[in-house]
Design a protein around this nucleic acid. Structure first.
Lengths: 176, 176
DNA sequence: GTCTGGGATGCTATGTTATAGCATCGAACG
DNA sequence: CGTTCGATGCTATAACATAGCATCCCAGAC
């Protein structure tokens, strides 16, 4: 039985793809601060407990505008606090999602901070295949049209997944 | 170190959920036969090889109108032909998807036969959370509206994932 | 102060989905 | 016959996710 070369790791790829650039230059600490403030507010109202772990996971989800995988969060959390187990992260993510503070990106098996946590909603997303960034769409009218179509077929719609993948403006300019 | 009870298996759940019913009564052998005929035709034109394995995987994907997981296919294929490895199945699925013969349902990590393989297209789906069936939507206008929205934001859209989950008409009647 | 109940977290183990990398085989072609 | 190329076989492992029970801690009851 010959020994094989082990496959390349994926976990270390926390950094963006080569050539990737952020969607646009901005002071990202504001994004994070705003998100955390909104989370505090929302949890304060609802009585939900934004514990240190949950808060820290939310912060890590907000570490960029690209969706982040649960195991990336796990790795970062582990660097800070010693060994962390998957259920810890998944439970925090589940909580944050239930509070409307994050969304799950199905086509990426990853999570992203919700830009409008004030209003409960499902997200629709534009995903850049180059830099990985995700932008949240507001597509209420379009969704309503889809719902009408479903209703016409006799369906009741409870959840919606809408994810559009392509190139963001910056990455189009960068790699024409 | 105490011994734990092992988690329940998921693989054996090839059968539909309790209380599930097909979307509507129909002669499903026709669906399968039509799909295979269309696949033959399409591959004949394009010169792609619909090999026995690929054909059989397509048949298994079409075994119901519910999305089927790669490992369910693997299990069934294994029953027939002896041990089969995951790459065999994934490669067949990749081929079928490239030919436009199946779609991947992102929110389920599963695959479903394409109802209109003649015209290359991406699918939009209505998924029933009770019986698991998926119906393919034709939502060109709605998609165009989403694309316009993306374009207005400077994005180029290459792929679209639209999946609506809820209850199909039969399951609404069955469990009111 | 002690008891108690429930939410949060710790922890072990395992289930589930997916891919890399190289070997082998067989048909098509010259 | 030998080369080439697409399909499949095969090993190993990465990557994603959850079940089930133990422990801890705090708020409220008594």
């Amino acid at each position: 039985m010959p020994r094989r070369k082990p496959p390349a790791l994926k976990h270390p790829t926390l950094s963006p793809a080569p050539g990737a650039r952020p969607l646009r230059a901005h002071d990202h600490t504001h994004c994070v601060a705003d998100a955390l403030a909104a989370a505090e507010a929302r949890c304060g109202e609802s009585g939900a407990q934004l514990t240190p772990i949950r808060r820290r996971v939310l912060e890590l989800v907000w570490s960029s505008h690209a969706p982040i995988g649960a195991y990336d969060i796990l790795a970062r959390l582990g660097q800070e606090t010693g060994k962390v187990q998957p259920p810890t992260v998944y439970r925090a993510l589940e909580f944050l999602k239930a509070q409307g503070l994050i969304h799950r990106i199905e086509s990426r098996n990853a999570f992203i901070g919700c830009a409008q946590p004030e209003a409960a909603h499902e997200g629709q997303f534009l995903l850049c295949r180059s830099c990985g960034d995700a932008a949240e769409l507001l597509a209420d009218k379009t969704l309503a049209a889809l719902d009408r179509q479903a209703t016409a077929l006799g369906y009741t719609v409870e959840h919606r997944t809408v994810e559009l993948e392509g190139l963001c403006p910056r990455c189009q300019d960068a790699a024409p």
